Amino acid sequence: MATLRERKTYRAQVLQALYEATEGNRLLGVAGSRLRDDLGIHEEDLAAACTYLVGEGLIAVDWATGNTPAMVTLTHQGIRLMEAEEEERG
């Protein structure tokens, strides 16, 4: 089981990877398997991160059998959060 620090890191990585891959476009998504492979996250940890981010209204997920993220997209709220973070970084 992942520690709290790891879980927070996974969530941030998922958001950042989605934002970069979709260039902030709500109409584009990323396959869960691609996120898992690109980020090197165990499937259970990816599912937990996605579940949390869905609950926060930051992403939307199409789930496959076994509670596996099949397709993941940013919501409007998720895009706004990532844009605000990008502006802060300059």
Rank of each mutant, 00 (worst) to 15 (best):
M1I: 10
M1S: 12
M1A: 13
A2G: 13
A2D: 15
A2W: 07
T3A: 10
L4H: 07
L4P: 00
R5A: 09
R5M: 05
E6Q: 15
E6S: 15
E6G: 12
R7V: 08
K8C: 00
K8G: 01
K8H: 00
K8P: 00
T9N: 06
T9V: 05
T9C: 01
T9I: 03
Y10D: 01
R11G: 03
A12C: 06
A12L: 03
Q13L: 00
Q13Y: 01
Q13V: 08
V14D: 04
L15V: 06
L15H: 03
L15D: 00
L15I: 04
A17T: 10
A17I: 08
L18G: 06
L18P: 08
Y19S: 07
E20H: 09
T22C: 10
T22W: 04
T22I: 07
G24I: 01
G24K: 06
N25H: 13
N25Y: 11
N25D: 15
R26S: 12
R26Y: 08
L27E: 14
L27N: 13
L27Y: 07
L27F: 10
L28R: 14
G29L: 04
A31F: 07
G32D: 06
G32R: 05
S33H: 11
L35H: 07
L35Q: 05
L35T: 05
R36M: 15
R36C: 13
D37C: 13
D37G: 12
D38W: 12
D38N: 13
D38L: 12
L39N: 07
G40N: 15
G40C: 14
G40H: 14
I41E: 03
I41D: 02
H42E: 15
H42V: 11
E43G: 00
E43P: 00
E44T: 14
E44C: 12
E44H: 14
E44G: 12
L46E: 02
L46T: 05
L46C: 01
A47C: 10
A47Q: 02
A47H: 05
A48K: 09
A49H: 02
A49N: 07
A49D: 03
A49L: 09
C50L: 03
C50R: 02
T51V: 04
T51G: 05
T51S: 10
Y52W: 11
L53R: 04
V54M: 10
G55L: 10
G55T: 11
G55Q: 09
G55C: 10
G57R: 04
G57D: 09
L58F: 14
I59A: 01
V61W: 02
D62H: 11
A64L: 12
T65I: 09
T65K: 08
G66L: 04
G66S: 08
T68V: 13
P69S: 09
V72E: 00
V72A: 01
T73G: 08
L74E: 00
L74P: 00
L74R: 01
T75V: 09
T75D: 07
T75L: 03
Q77P: 12
Q77M: 14
G78V: 01
G78K: 01
I79T: 06
I79N: 08
I79G: 00
R80W: 03
L81Y: 02
M82D: 01
E85L: 13
E85S: 13
E86P: 04
E86Q: 11
E87Q: 15
E87H: 13
E88F: 12
R89V: 10
R89N: 14
